[in-house]
Design a protein around this nucleic acid. Structure first.
Lengths: 204, 204
DNA sequence: GCAAACTTGTACCGATCGGTCTGTACAAAA
DNA sequence: TTTTGTACAGACCGATCGGTACAAGTTTGC
């Protein structure tokens, strides 16, 4: 699911085509960035971890920052696409909240390194690109916002301040720090538990 | 309040004494680390921002990493001390939750750069120190945990999984990304709104 | 078999990294 | 007056930074 937006050929968007080598580089880089931060990882290190020399590395990428940008946009786009799909297919506010919650938690759990980078390394991007990624974050928040508004219109939910929505999403986003995908509780269970928190917060 | 643990003379702990110059360096470094990440900031830059040359800078600090470590431990210690104080002085579970919530949100808002560093730059510390700071995070979580357990014992609250507590705290910790201390909603209001979310989540 | 396109390693660029060293200005103590 | 200690600047250290140039090796289409 995540590789979808990385592997599909993209005529219109800024995504460049992705060779298997490039995909490998993106995955390795995500792991390194998650472990030591964008500026804490050198291109030498990325080369060593992928088994590529510097020249070979720069044949597949155009810059180190591109790596970070491509990782964040790809996975945020996946998140948005999945959220949009749930928003359109499930009309019951409560069930929709549960589905959104599970999907988000499972995405974070399955691609922990990439999501860590998405949520934590935003500051390493230059202005324009940072704004672009922040815009994707807003797009994702807008999906939840629309979902809650719809629940409000149906009388199931009560109105909440936007800061509370930001907080509730932070509950998920911050989980990259403590989440253990191999832990006793799987992502779906945590997603369900978080959905319960959200529902208690917004229920009329 | 935050400067307390930085300025007080420390006979027993590892905190070294803090001259005004050193305090200034810590504040400036926190701002830079928050803006560009620990590895993204050079010591040259810290020197320029404080108006100090390299020699002068290293007269006051022992290493760049020390700066990060001192910032995180100082502010986490403050958070823990304040939380402990609330835990001991307020026995009503609901009021205590509100006080903990407000105190946390206000601390984050008042020292946004330092808190950002506390929550986001952990990975830049070497193993031993990272563990030490993570232990402080656990200590803080334990305060909330004890508060909720007490509310449970009193029949006010219901039991919740530890992952839910981690999530609820993440709601606060992640706010460094969107919080605007000069924004329309002040930190106390947001703290109250978050307290309401927590109370709805844990109320029996 | 041969050329074109694709992939790679190595050497190299100027800049900057964290950290140290030497020297100095100055004030308090002796 | 000499000594001591503090606070500072700036040159300097080896190492590494992100990125490029280029030649050699490999695959592919004809």
């Amino acid at each position: 699911m995540t590789t979808e937006s990385l592997t599909q050929s993209q005529p219109a968007t800024s995504h460049r085509q992705v060779s298997p080598t490039r995909l490998k580089i993106l995955q390795v880089a995500a792991g390194l960035f998650a472990a030591r931060g964008f500026s804490g990882v050198g291109v030498n290190e990325i080369g060593e971890a992928t088994g590529l020399g510097r020249g070979a590395l720069y044949y597949h990428i155009s810059s180190k920052e591109d790596l970070l940008y491509d990782i964040t946009t790809a996975y945020m786009s996946d998140l948005i696409a999945e959220g949009q799909s749930i928003l359109e297919s499930e009309s019951d506010p409560t069930l929709r909240t549960q589905k959104l919650s599970r999907a988000l938690m499972m995405a974070i759990s399955e691609h922990l390194s990439e999501m860590t980078v998405c949520f934590r390394e935003l500051h390493a991007l230059t202005d324009e690109r940072r704004r672009a990624v922040m815009s994707l974050h807003s797009d994702y928040q807008a999906i939840w916002s629309r979902s809650l508004s719809d629940g409000m219109a149906k009388g199931t939910f009560r109105p909440i301040p936007s800061t509370v929505l930001k907080g509730l999403l932070g509950m998920y986003f911050y989980s990259f720090l403590w989440l253990d995908p191999r832990g006793p509780q799987n992502a779906a269970d945590i997603g369900d538990a978080f959905a319960e928190v959200v529902l208690r917060a917004v229920r009329a």
